Amino acid sequence: MTPSMLEFDRLTKRYGERTALRELSFSVAAGELFGFVGSNGAGKTTTMRIALGVLASDSGEVRWKGGAVDLAVRARIGYMPEERGLYPKMKVGEQLVYLAQIHGMGGRAAQSAMEAWTERLGVAERRGDEVQKLSLGNQQRVQLAAALVHDPEVLILDEPFSGLDPVAVEVMSGVLREKAAEGCPVVFSSHQLDLVERLCDRVGIIRGGEMVACDTVEALRSQGNRRVLVVAPRAGATWAEGVPGVTTLEADGGRFLVELDDSADDQALLHAALATGPVHEFATQQQTLTDLFRNVVTQEVAA
């Protein structure tokens, strides 16, 4: 076992007859960016709240460095809730200093950390403003500062990119990379799957309270049937139908995205494309994380 590993071990949580989490297990290593994705109501927020002690699981446990996550450990976790947890009428600077101090920092260190993070996140000029007077994007920046100000050993962030403009997204992405580079396990949920794909070392997809896929981004993208992009300007919409095991996913003029099952022969597909005339492109394409997620959601609906 890796000493600085955050482990979620067989978490189960029920609300009456509804099971929100069912034997959910995954781990996040030191220095790893882990993307936690799923549909609304899949169990992401419940999992994070159990890690913070906001909720209690019915069974299973969360461990840090091999031990239970108790009050002392939770003081070393930086948590960013999806629903903002700041005091709306308290000034930004005062609030961040206060939050740092209740996590155990001394007054001078807390002041220094507040100044550093508000500067880093672009809200230094708003230190004297009440949180409720900030734009939603700036409130999100302050919420991240609140998760970082006490120099946490672990980061757990629920939809941290929600409501941010592209510049703020890049700033926040840079911060998460930096914290991971310092050895901090970083877990975050997001519906922005292109961002998850770009940032994360590994991704876990949760459906109905169960982990249905968990691996590196590259491994997840390589799952499923092969896909080929074919650019054949003279081909009709149904040119690929005669090739066994091939399904046309997209057709736009002479540009086609087709899927090949295990029985399909890509050379037979190429010959069929050439039979229509010139072929300008014939390239294998991996599915995106969005494609994989869509397939998982489709399975959920079908079930």
Score class of each variant (00 low, 15 high):
234 R>C: 10
218 E>L: 07
222 S>D: 12
229 L>D: 10
232 A>T: 11
210 E>Q: 14
208 G>V: 04
219 A>Y: 07
208 G>N: 12
207 R>G: 08
240 A>Q: 09
244 P>T: 08
221 R>E: 15
242 G>I: 05
240 A>G: 03
214 C>I: 00
216 T>G: 06
234 R>E: 15
236 G>H: 09
223 Q>R: 15
224 G>V: 01
213 A>F: 04
238 T>C: 07
239 W>H: 04
212 V>P: 00
251 A>D: 05
231 V>H: 14
224 G>P: 01
248 T>I: 03
234 R>Y: 14
219 A>H: 05
209 G>D: 06
215 D>S: 08
245 G>D: 02
248 T>Y: 02
229 L>W: 09
251 A>E: 10
247 T>A: 11
240 A>M: 03
252 D>R: 05
252 D>E: 12
217 V>C: 12
226 R>N: 10
232 A>P: 05
224 G>D: 01
206 I>V: 13
247 T>F: 01
215 D>C: 05
233 P>K: 10
233 P>R: 14
222 S>W: 11
246 V>P: 03
221 R>H: 14
219 A>T: 14
237 A>K: 11
210 E>T: 15
232 A>Y: 13
215 D>T: 01
253 G>L: 06
235 A>T: 11
222 S>Q: 08
236 G>S: 11
217 V>G: 08
214 C>P: 01
220 L>K: 09
231 V>S: 10
240 A>Y: 11
250 E>A: 02
243 V>R: 01
225 N>Y: 08
246 V>R: 04
247 T>P: 09
250 E>R: 06
221 R>P: 07
206 I>R: 04
212 V>I: 05
209 G>K: 06
238 T>V: 10
215 D>L: 06
235 A>L: 05
231 V>C: 07
208 G>Q: 02
253 G>W: 02
